[in-house]
């Protein structure tokens, strides 16, 4: 049962295609598991469809249709290969770097993403805290396995954390299993050891 969801504005940015790639990957991981958010995205996409119907058309060039008619036998664009079959579908084709130790019991594995946000996988052992983020911009965390808790509640697989206010309590891995999350953040860098590792890795 999923208890923690992205905010409506984040879902709207996802549906209109304006969420930076790294954040969109975290959102997609949650949405793939969450029927309520899939429904919200469907509503927003239908709004996009209504907007398309409403817009004042702008004529295409005169030969546009003829040009397309000769291209109709082209094969559809190739889908990128699956690189990480062990990860949920939205992450399976993402190009990931190596694991980096970023503190006792915590490892981080960045992915390459375009845009103003960065992200990666974070693996923390039971009893460890997840690294603190600054809260200068949007920050998303989705649990893949294990559980953590912070000032706003407990997060189990599928739950998405989108802190809207600063809270002092750092996320702490609870239970007996390590906690694997995907994280993404825009505009600022992580503090402490993870921040240091991030600078070493280059992003």
């Amino acid at each position: 049962m999923i208890h923690h969801h992205p905010t409506e504005t984040t879902l709207a940015a996802y549906a209109t295609g304006t969420l930076p790639e790294a954040l969109a990957l975290v959102a997609a991981t949650h949405i793939a598991r969450c029927a309520a958010c899939r429904q919200a995205v469907a509503t927003l996409e239908a709004t996009g469809g209504a907007v398309l119907d409403e817009v004042t058309p702008v004529a295409l060039s005169g030969e546009a249709l003829d040009r397309l008619l000769v291209r109709m036998d082209e094969p559809p664009r190739a889908v990128p290969p699956v690189l990480n079959p062990e990860l949920p579908a939205p992450l399976s084709r993402v190009s990931l770097g190596r694991w980096w130790p970023v503190g006792p019991g915590v490892r981080y594995r960045p992915w390459r993403a375009s845009g103003v946000a960065w992200g990666g996988l974070l693996l923390a052992q039971p009893g460890r805290s997840l690294p603190r983020h600054g809260h200068a911009g949007l920050e998303l965390t989705c649990v893949l396995s294990g559980r953590f808790a912070d000032g706003s509640g407990e997060f189990a697989p599928g739950d998405l954390s989108e802190p809207v206010t600063d809270h002092d309590q750092p996320p702490l891995v609870i239970g007996t299993q390590p906690c694997l999350c995907i994280i993404a953040s825009e505009g600022m860098r992580l503090r402490g050891l993870l921040g240091f590792a991030q600078r070493m890795i280059g992003r």
Partner: peptide, 26 residues
């Protein structure tokens, strides 16, 4: 209209990112 909107959106995102869009990966 909704279906075509999502195709247009994904193509635009692909062009901006020159990479994949999560909706294609889902």
């Amino acid at each position: 209209s909704t279906w075509i909107f999502t195709i247009a959106r994904n193509l635009r995102v692909d062009t901006l990112r020159r990479e994949r869009h999560p909706s294609d990966l889902m």
